[in-house]
């Protein structure tokens, strides 16, 4: 390729990223960027109208995603991306609303909103990047930290039981649940694509190495080592019983698409029920004529 051709060549991510905000703040070896690339790829393949895509993040490393993607994007408060997305989606049902945030944000401080959005079958996609710790603040213990792992506020090792996220959200009513590691690039992309094409509450957990904090503190090597380790420890079991997919420290990771079912969404339920009870007097909401 000539120098001129190179200069003219467009960055393949240009339609999806706010190039004026690059470089991003993520550490070398962090998996968040890879998940963002998968997200962009999934959107490209989905052929959705990108003007109708909105991304909502909370606070934390993954919480910064909303600031880099070139869609209507909202960087909200810690833990509150899901209720924000709930309001956004209900106010303008045409939107495809994606919550992109971390485990500490979505499951720790925001856990109450997660279970209620799943219960309501709110029509949003939740991409939860799980790096097993609160990374932005320096590697503190999280609701997802495996037992025995060393964290800055569990300096003698974590003795609390962690959440098993796929089991949690499935039990609460999620209609699409998948888990991958950030090295399962094509599979993450495919899952996001499937979730985007679906109506209902979708939840995708992506296990990602935190190089600077979790890996260093636990002497797990550099980003590449850990990325590879998670990948190698993965066993794909589509449709696995989510009760069995809990994560042990440096143990086997059960990944795959665990749940994919159909169920009326919050708005479907509201419109169907009120129409039935109130008849013609009911003014349907968010339904295209």
């Amino acid at each position: 390729m000539s120098r001129e051709e190179l200069a003219e060549e467009k960055n393949p991510m240009e339609d999806f990223l706010r190039m004026d905000r690059i470089p991003h703040i993520w550490c070398p070896g962090c998996g968040i960027g890879t998940v963002v690339t998968s997200f962009a790829d999934a959107l490209k393949k989905s052929e959705l109208d990108l003007d109708k895509v909105a991304v909502v993040s909370g606070i934390g490393c993954t919480g910064r995603v909303a600031g880099y993607v070139k869609f209507d994007s909202f960087h909200t408060t810690h833990g509150r991306a899901i209720p924000f997305a709930t309001g956004l989606k209900l106010a303008n049902p045409e939107l495809k609303v994606v919550v992109f945030s971390g485990d500490g944000d979505i499951v720790g401080i925001g856990g109450n909103h997660l279970i209620h959005a799943a219960r309501r079958n709110m029509d949003i996609v939740v991409i939860c990047v799980n790096n097993f710790n609160y990374a932005m603040t320096g590697g503190q213990v999280a609701a997802t930290s495996p037992m025995g792992a060393n964290l800055s506020t569990a300096p003698y090792g974590n003795f609390e039981y962690p959440f098993n996220l796929p089991y949690l959200v499935e039990t609460c009513g999620a209609t699409y649940v998948a888990r991958w590691t950030s090295l399962h690039i094509r599979r993450v992309t495919k899952s996001i694509q499937e979730a985007l094409a679906k109506r209902g509450f979708s939840f995708i957990e992506v296990i990602t190495p935190c190089v600077t904090l979790y890996a260093r503190r636990n002497r797990l090597g550099d980003g590449l080592n850990l990325l590879k380790y998670y990948y190698d420890q993965s066993e794909i079991q589509h449709g696995a019983d989510t009760r069995t997919v809990g994560i042990d420290y440096q143990g086997k990771l059960i990944v795959g698409k665990f749940v994919d079912k159909e169920k009326p969404t919050f708005l479907d339920g509201m419109n169907t029920h009120l129409q039935k009870v109130l008849g013609e007097k009911y003014v349907p909401y968010g339904v295209k004529p």
Partner: peptide, 22 residues
Amino acid sequence: IFIQMEDEIASITALIGASWGG
């Protein structure tokens, strides 16, 4: 829409989202 949220934190945050939804 009337939606009863899980707490007041969710209520106010949903309002902000919905306001940006127009």
